[in-house]
Write a protein that binds this DNA or RNA. Structure first.
Lengths: 83, 83
DNA sequence: AGTAATTTGTTCGTATGTATC
DNA sequence: AGATACATACGAACAAATTAC
């Protein structure tokens, strides 16, 4: 079953962060690999660009990803993850 | 000279956060007192509502303010500030 | 060398929902 | 009931960085 965004009481940006965090922690997206691009997420999940930006900020604050401008948003090596 | 927002290389939301942080640390806005409202900031500084929201999030991440829904954004007591 | 395409970040204006007074 | 205030979300535009050709 595809993971989708619902109109629940949980904000969409939080749902998106949860989805990506799960993909990272499960190894589906590996360290030093990029998250899907903004355009991809907007198209596939049907959210606004800003909403994705907010989701990414959650993951950035958690230390799971970092941005390389003009390239993408990359999963940090496991050594940099919080304990 | 009035504090204003410029079109420099520093993002506006960061400039706004800097302005409010200075007001807080200087005691101009005291603990348990509110920041200016979103409408006020939008009107006086000439920025978009989203830009103010981002500035507030910076201060919230720093532990300087917290939100009371429907009421305002309040300066935390000094005991809660980071060392 | 230069242009186009991709990607992120910033900013705008607007609308809506919920909470407080 | 009405006014005020914050959070969320949308859609659009533009700048800067990177890559590919």
């Amino acid at each position: 079953m595809p993971v989708e965004i619902s109109e629940s009481d949980v904000p969409k940006y939080q749902q998106l962060a949860d989805i990506m965090r799960r993909r990272i922690l499960s190894g589906e997206i590996q360290p030093r690999h990029p998250l899907p691009s903004k355009k991809q997420v907007v198209g596939e999940f049907g959210v606004a660009p800003n909403t994705w930006d907010r989701a990414v900020q959650v993951l950035r604050d958690e230390g799971l990803v970092h941005t390389v401008m003009g390239l993408g948003i990359y999963v940090r090596p496991r050594e940099d993850w919080p304990a």
